[in-house]
Each structure stands twice: as C-alpha cells, then as structure tokens.
Design a protein around this nucleic acid. Structure first.
Length: 420
RNA sequence: GCGGGUGUAGCUCAGCAGGUAGAGCCCCAGAUUGUGACUCUGGUUGUCGCGGGUUCGAGCCCCGUCACUCGCCCCA
C-alpha cells in the first residue's frame, strides 16, 4: 500500500472547513491593513536560501529539500518565505514603484525534519512583509497585523514577546563580549551549548538547559550594548504597543535563528502545544535586501505557522465545528423520476442553491436518512404522484413539516424554508 | 540526527501460560411495500504495521525495519 509521505498530511472535511474560515479572516484582516497578496513559486534556486537565510542555520544546513533538475540547476523546495518575497521585490523593483510595499502570503513550506505534533515536513505559513520603512511605526504595524489576525481567527491562549537585537554593529560588539564570558564558563555549559558557542552563541541565551540558564544569569545584557538610535527605535515600538493596549513582555534573552534579523524581533508563543511553543515569529531584517544583491531597503515582517494555529483553535474549541450541509437534498422516489429529478436539481443549483442528489438509487427511507446525515436544510421529493400532479414535496428538515407545492413555485418555496 | 512510548476492523479499544481474532461505535438492509430519532433483527469489514527468526503452532516471544507519538536539537 502506498501511504502519504512522512511528515505530510491530507487536509479535508471539518478541519479543512476551519482552515478556509481562517483564510477568510486572513484576507479580511490583511485587507484592513492595506496588504496585498503575493504568490511566489514553490521552487527557488538553492542559492537564494543559502545567501538569504544563512549557511550556518539548521534550515540551510540540514533541513532543505534540495535536488538538481534536468538542466543541472540546484533547486530547493522553499523552507521559508521571506527570502523569496525579497527576491521578488528586488527582481520586480517593487519598492521603487511603491515606496511602502505591503505584502502578505499563505502557502506550503518544506523542511526535512523529524515530525512532531505541530511540526511537519510540509507545513503552511501565513505571513506579511512591510518593505520600505525603517521607522518604528512599520514594526508596530506588522506586530498589530499578526495579533489582530490571530484574534480574528478565534484563538486567545497565546502571548507576545518582543526584544531588540539592535543594529548589526552593536550586536557584533555584544557578541564578542558574550563569547568571551561564555568561554570562561565553558565547563558549566551543556554539550549543545558548547557546540553553539561556535555556530550561534546568541542562542545560548534562551537555552532550555537549567545549567545553561544558570550561566546565562551572569552574562552581559545585549541591551546594554545598544547604541542610542537602536534603543530609541525599540522604545518607540513598545510605546505604540502600549498605546494600542496590546499586552506583551520584553524578553531580553530572545534571539531569532535566522541570520538576517536586526532591531525588533518578536515571537507569539503558547503553552498549549508542547515543545512547539512558537506560533509566530518575526522581526526587522534591514540587511537582507543587500545580502541578496538589491539596494538596501528596510523591511519588517512575520510568519505564522498555520498548523500550529489550527491545533490551538481545535484545542480551545474542543474540536472542529461541523461544516454546513447542503441547502437541499433532492429525493427521487421512483424510477421514472430519475431524469426529471436530476434536471430539477440543476434548476435549483442555477438559482444559487447547493443541492445533493442520490446517486445510489436507494430507497426513499435511505435517502431521507442521508439528507439528515448531511444536515440538509430542505428535502425536495419527486416521485410518480408528484409528476402526475406537476408538484413536488418540500420538507423542512428541522421541523419535519412538509407540503406539496406546484413545480413552478419550487424555488420560491424552498427559499421560504431556507429562512425558517 | 539522538532518547522514550505505541502500532489488532473505517474509528475507540479488548485479547493471552504462545492454540488458527473480538466488542462498542460507524456503515448496509429489513421490521415501517414513499420519510430522519429510538428500539429490534440480520449483515459487511482485518495481509493483527512490514520482514525475518524461535516453535508442532506466534497478534502474543526474539531480531530487524517502517510509521505514529512524546521529549532533545531546531523552528512556524
């Protein structure tokens, strides 16, 4: 038997209906903020991610689906969306045409990781990028858009954490100090953190290891190394959040894994998903345009893991709400009515109603049971008697009341029951 | 990539000192010859994850493997 590929899943039924509702919220909220959808291909040149995301990151180092195509090009199934969006912005000169370019996206991403709850090899992210502004209002707008969307989707068990990494220069100075401090305490660090000392020392700051946390307590603080402009920028972002009444905490130990961040970084986290506690990650990435060969352009964005959001939604609501049934179940009560009933269904559909018919040539009893199971609003029955009199039976399923009506009045009569 | 747990019907699960597989739900038909619930009657459903080994005999024991799951790493 051929099964689904590991780490990937089918989406259907009530769960898919819930996704579609969430997508509706996403469209409405992004529209309210003036963001336009942007769709990029699922495949990009591998080089884009190597340069954009960073060779030292786990994403590029061990998680990419990379292959060579028939022409010999190295292509990669996109593992994140910011680099492709920036690639597109540079390639199409978007920011020149529109000095503030506001984009959102929703689509599948691929990372070759060990699957876990809330972590899949094909997963989906909704995200937004605000390109062109270096000012704190842009950072705040992005954070507000993320928060408004999550609230609109209907979840509440999450919290916002923010931090600043400052300018690249101030962070480099801090990094040197941190490495010096940690190196002098290397015996107290976990094996993972000793390794991180080389690859990504800032990450040791938010290590889960208790011994590491003990060492980190005495470490120098990044914030103390920031220049005045960086502090002012961060202060302004927090000021807007305060004024807007958005609750958040400043987490001085939060760092982000990808190379391209600068200044504001933030995460939206939850306690309800085990070790996959991040449902949203984002921040400012002013260096990225230049890294990818474009003219320097300030930018800030976020991405939200849809699977994790939907898991939260399911947990908070105790399951998926059943999808709505069809408006009408058309019951065929005789062999002679078979063709006419199909045509009746078509007539109702052209009037804008959703209509399901029986395709198994089953008994009336079985068809009524089916109409009930599908949660149809109305059942319309056509049989020999009805055809004789040019009538149909219209039944309001919820009240169980039914009546004969002239064929010519069918649509109007069904509409009456739809409102009841 | 590393460590723990679990794999039996579509779903939830039972099974035993190793003796040729069960329940509930679901689904189907009928009781009700053109009407949903409930009830009753009858019925369908399995390579016991896969491969190998031990044994007269393996769902059960052993080895391997795959998948799922929890944690680590990392991240959405």
């Amino acid at each position: 038997m051929i099964s689904v590929v590991r780490g990937m899943r089918d989406l259907h039924g009530n769960e898919l209906a819930a996704w579609q509702q969430a997508e509706d919220v996403i469209r409405a909220t992004t529209a309210a903020f003036g963001y336009s959808e942007y769709r990029t291909p699922i495949l990009e040149f591998t080089e884009l991610f190597k340069r954009g995301v960073g060779t030292d990151t786990d994403i590029v180092g061990k998680e990419m689906y990379t292959f060579e195509d028939r022409g010999g090009d190295s292509l990669t199934l996109r593992p994140e969306m910011t680099a492709p969006i920036v690639r597109a912005a540079i390639e199409n000169n978007l920011v020149r045409h529109s000095p503030t370019t506001r984009l959102w996206y929703l689509g599948p991403l691929f990372r070759y990781e060990r699957p876990q709850k809330g972590r899949y090899r094909q997963f989906h992210q909704f995200g937004a990028e605000c390109l062109g502004s270096a000012h704190p209002e842009a950072d705040a707008e992005i954070i507000l858009l993320a928060m408004e969307t999550l609230a609109g989707i209907g979840i509440s068990s999450f919290r916002l954490e923010v931090n600043t990494l400052g300018s690249p220069e101030s962070r480099a100075a801090y990094r040197a100090e941190l490495v010096a401090y940690l190196s002098s305490n290397i015996d107290a660090l976990s094996a993972d953190s000793v390794r991180r000392l080389d690859t990504n020392p800032l990450r040791i700051l938010d290590s889960k290891d208790p011994a590491d946390a003990e060492v980190v307590k005495g470490a120098p603080r990044l914030y103390d190394y920031l220049d005045d402009d960086s502090k002012a920028h961060f202060g302004a972002v927090c000021g807007i959040l305060d004024s807007a009444g958005i609750p958040y905490t400043v987490n001085h130990r939060m760092v982000r894994g990808l190379d391209y961040y600068s200044h504001t970084v933030f995460e939206i986290v939850t306690d309800a998903l085990g070790s996959q506690n991040a449902i949203c990650g984002g921040g400012r990435y002013d260096p990225l345009f230049a890294i990818l060969g474009g003219t320097a352009t300030p930018a800030v964005g976020f991405s939200i893991g849809m699977e994790r959001v939907m898991l939260l939604l399911e947990a908070e609501h105790g399951g998926w709400t059943p999808a709505a049934g069809p408006d009408v179940f058309l019951c065929c009560a005789s062999d002679a009515a078979r063709l006419p009933s199909q045509l009746l269904a078509l007539r109702l559909r052209r009037a804008g109603l959703s209509v399901v018919t029986d395709l198994l040539r089953r008994s009336v009893k079985a068809q009524v049971r089916e109409a009930d199971k599908l949660a149809a609003q109305v059942m319309v029955t056509l049989g020999d008697d009805e055809m004789e009199r040019q009538e149909v039976v219209v039944k309001h399923m919820a009240s169980r009341e039914q009546r004969s009506v002239p064929l010519a009045a069918l649509v109007d009569e069904v509409m009456k029951d739809m409102k009841a």
